[in-house]
Amino acid sequence: MKQYLQNDTFFNQNHHEISSWLKMVKGSGERAKAVSIYYLVRDGIKYDPFTLLDGAKSLSSDYCLDNKAAYCIPKASLQIALSRACNIPSRLGLADVRNHLSTPKLDELLKNEVFTMHAYVEQFIEGKWVKSTPAFNKELCDLVNIKPLEFDGLNHSLFHQFTTDGKKHMEYLKDHGQYAAMPTAFINQNCEFYYPHLNLNFNNI
């Protein structure tokens, strides 16, 4: 499990704000802390998909803390950094999804119906890996009529499958697995394939 507790550039436990965030983590047990961290990240950092245009620097937990807004990968990075700081083994999951509620502005940017490299987190809680997705904050979910994902530390929390009125929202198309360290080359490869017009570079930070 040592590799899932490591501190590094992307899952940085040494950012000057980390200690303040850790003071907000509630509960004494492993599961209670994991759940508390999930909600801190879900609602404490605004979801903004357009921040991916900042390239490699936007992948890190530091980016969330410096900007208070980010897309799914850096939000997952922050959840991982906080979890590891609490001695909860954590790793990054990546998948391709289709979002049926994408905005025209985002569609124009991506020019593709596939959202590649959508991030989730796996935390090792009470003897098993449990998945959660901290990307979409409650305020945003309320705005677009989506029930925010809840997390209890026991069951996976991944699927925004339907809006509150029953319309389809998100489909998972392909799960690329889990990573102890940020797979920058793999992320770069997929973004170049799906969004070549954006000229994103995730290889250097």
Results as ranks from 00 to 15, higher is better:
I73C: 06
K2R: 08
D48A: 14
Q79Y: 09
L53A: 11
Y38M: 12
R84H: 10
Y39V: 07
Y4R: 02
D66F: 01
T9K: 08
R84F: 00
N12W: 05
L53N: 00
D66L: 15
T51M: 13
A85N: 04
P89Y: 14
R42V: 10
L5Y: 06
K46E: 06
A81D: 05
N67D: 02
F11G: 10
V35C: 07
G27T: 09
M24R: 11
C86P: 00
Y47M: 04
L22W: 00
V25G: 07
S58I: 03
L65K: 02
C86Q: 10
D48V: 10
A85G: 03
D43M: 14
F11C: 10
H16M: 12
N14T: 13
D62Q: 01
S77T: 04
T51Y: 04
L52N: 04
G29P: 05
K26E: 15
Q13K: 15
I18V: 14
P49M: 13
E30M: 08
A70L: 06
R84C: 06
C72I: 07
C72S: 04
L82C: 00
A32R: 08
A32V: 02
V35N: 04
G55Y: 06
K33M: 11
S36P: 01
K23S: 06
K2Q: 13
S20F: 01
A76S: 15
M1G: 13
S36I: 11
L52C: 11
P89V: 15
D54Q: 06
L5T: 04
I88Q: 13
D8G: 09
N12F: 04
W21A: 07
Q3T: 14
L52D: 11
N67I: 10
L5M: 13
D8T: 00
H16D: 11
T51H: 03
K46N: 01
Q79F: 15
G44T: 04
R42M: 14
D8M: 00
L59R: 14
D43E: 12
Y63K: 11
L52Q: 10
F10M: 09
S77A: 15
L78S: 04
Q13F: 02
R31K: 14
S36G: 03
A56Q: 09
L22N: 05
F10T: 07
R31N: 08
L22I: 07
A69R: 05
Y63G: 14
T9V: 02
L65T: 06
F50I: 03
A85M: 00
D62R: 08
I18T: 11
M24P: 02
Y63C: 13
K2E: 01
N67Y: 02
I37T: 05
S28G: 15
S19H: 13
D66A: 14
I88Y: 12
T9W: 03
L40R: 06
K46S: 05
A32T: 07
S61C: 00
